[in-house]
């Protein structure tokens, strides 16, 4: 049982990307993150939500679900879509790999999520959708 949790769903529209990362960041504020930690969370959430919109729903109408949890000093965000899913998750997670080079995607979304968070889990089923779980302990990095 999480000590605190928050659940939202929103239309898979690009104008909600900024909204989603702002909401996740605001919720994480309760753990007193540093500016860097907060920026890491906002960036990782933005990547996951953008993936749901571009790759999950391929810009067709759909709903993105975001569940955030605070447990002690750990922030968790679970971002879920009911879109097309990922055929090969390990390929999708490779740096610079993109299934949509025509859209000028950098292929760095999962790499950024991995680098900015402590853990990244991706579960997906073609035709059913994708669930991305991001976790980060706040106050761990003494260098910041």
């Amino acid at each position: 049982m999480a000590q605190n949790e928050m659940h939202i769903s929103f239309s898979g529209l690009s104008q909600n990307e900024g909204f989603a990362r702002m909401v996740a960041g605001s919720f994480a504020m309760q753990l007193n993150p540093t500016i860097e930690e907060l920026s890491d969370i906002r960036t990782a959430v933005s990547e996951a939500v953008t993936n749901a919109i571009i790759h999950g729903y391929e810009n067709k109408p759909g709903t993105v679900y975001m569940d955030c949890y605070l447990n002690d000093n750990e922030f968790t965000a679970v971002i879920r879509d009911e879109g097309s899913g990922i055929e090969d998750i390990s390929l999708a997670r490779q740096p610079f790999y993109t299934s949509k080079p025509e859209l000028e995607r950098s292929g760095m979304g999962f790499t950024v999520m991995e680098a900015f968070m402590d853990t990244l889990e991706v579960a997906s089923e073609p035709g059913k959708g994708t669930v991305v779980t991001l976790k980060k302990k706040i106050g761990q990095d003494q260098s910041q």
């Binding site: 920026s39 960036t43 933005s46 953008t50 859209l103 000028e104 292929g107 760095m108 979304g109 950024v112």
Partner: peptide, 13 residues
């Protein structure tokens, strides 16, 4: 004030 990998794509392009 904010950039993610989508912004990186724009600059690489």
């Amino acid at each position: 004030t904010f950039m993610d990998s989508s912004g990186l794509g724009v600059i690489l392009g």
